[in-house]
């Protein structure tokens, strides 16, 4: 039933790709390219905008701060996400769906509603501050501080840690733990020597994913953090809309993009890509 076509004619399937290529290429590709083009002097082939990033005294500091914040967020999400993902593998199907729904809650709600919620929680004399005061720490300021931003960002990024972890942990045969115990390992040793090494792929993927996304956060630091402690995304925004330093912004954007892509590529190689998350999210019938 295939109608034969001349060799020189492209496969008709390519025609169906034209609208997508035009839309994505025109609206996203061209601006990204122009931004890169400006960053190298619009044809003058200069690297001065890049070298400026390292010499202006601000960018490096902000980069370091962003890296540090992202690392803290990554550790916090790992510490919270691992037990949670582990629990997900241990409960029945009903409770598992409940836990999945809770993980996806940060996706479900609008970014601004969520950030607003955090703003209320972190406000001076807000719920979190009063909760912490119960333990004797009554002078912790969270609104407008790095700690507050970390707390909020960790919550938003927790799903990106939990979902790859859950898919990694779900694939581990628990009978291996029984085997280890029959061979003489106490439960905790069995966990450490058998279970944890097998979950390492999920841990690495989740960490890289979380770190990457944390590096590009814009709204949360802008709403909850202090302007004096801006992160790289805010710096990029400032440079664009306030300083109108388009070439400098292009260089910084290119740098962020390259770092992100390298990290994502690495996560992919470690076996936990965005697709893994999608698969888990899809399993539950949830689309976000």
């Amino acid at each position: 039933m295939m109608t034969s076509r001349p060799r020189w004619l492209p496969h008709p399937g390519w025609l169906l790709l034209i609208p997508a290529v035009a839309l994505l290429g025109g609206i996203l590709g061209v601006p990204l390219w122009q931004s890169f083009w400006r960053s190298i002097g619009s044809g003058d082939w200069t690297l001065e905008h890049y070298s400026a990033l390292f010499t202006d005294g601000v960018t490096l500091k902000v980069l370091a701060r962003t890296g540090q914040a992202a690392a803290v967020v990554t550790i916090v999400t790992l510490l919270l996400g691992y037990p949670y993902a582990y629990l997900m593998t241990r409960v029945g199907p009903l409770w598992r769906s409940v836990l999945v729904v809770m993980v996806l809650m940060p996706f479900w709600t609008s970014a601004l509603a969520r950030n607003f919620g955090w703003l209320i929680l972190l406000y001076d004399n807000g719920l979190v501050q009063r909760f912490i005061a119960l333990f004797g720490f009554d002078d912790v300021v969270l609104y407008g501080t790095a700690q507050g931003v970390t707390l909020a960002m960790s919550q938003v990024l927790l799903p990106f840690m939990v979902l790859p972890l859950f898919s990694a942990l779900g694939g581990i045969d628990r009978r291996l733990l029984l085997a280890a115990r029959s061979l003489g390992s106490p439960p905790l040793v069995a966990f450490w020597k058998v279970y944890f090494p097998l979950s390492r792929g999920g841990v690495v993927a989740g960490c890289i994913l979380t770190f990457t996304l944390a590096c590009g956060f814009y709204v949360t630091p802008a709403l909850i953090g202090s302007p004096r402690e801006s992160l790289i995304a805010q710096l990029l925004g400032q440079r664009t809309t306030q300083l109108l330093d388009f070439a400098g912004a292009g260089a910084l954007g290119t740098l962020v993009l390259v770092v992100t892509l390298v990290l994502v590529w690495w996560a992919n190689r470690m076996g936990g890509s965005m697709a893994t998350i999608g698969a888990v999210a899809g399993q539950t019938g949830t689309r976000r």
Binding site: L17, L24, L28, L32, Q34, G216, L236, G237, R239, T260
Partner: peptide, 27 residues
């Protein structure tokens, strides 16, 4: 086709802020 697929999925991986600033300047 595999290359095209990756290219078309690419925007998912780019941080919003990078897209936003680039789009803003071009727009």
């Amino acid at each position: 086709a595999r290359f095209m697929q990756s290219a078309l999925m690419f925007p998912i991986l780019v941080p919003s802020i990078v897209i936003a600033t680039a789009v803003y300047i071009s727009f």
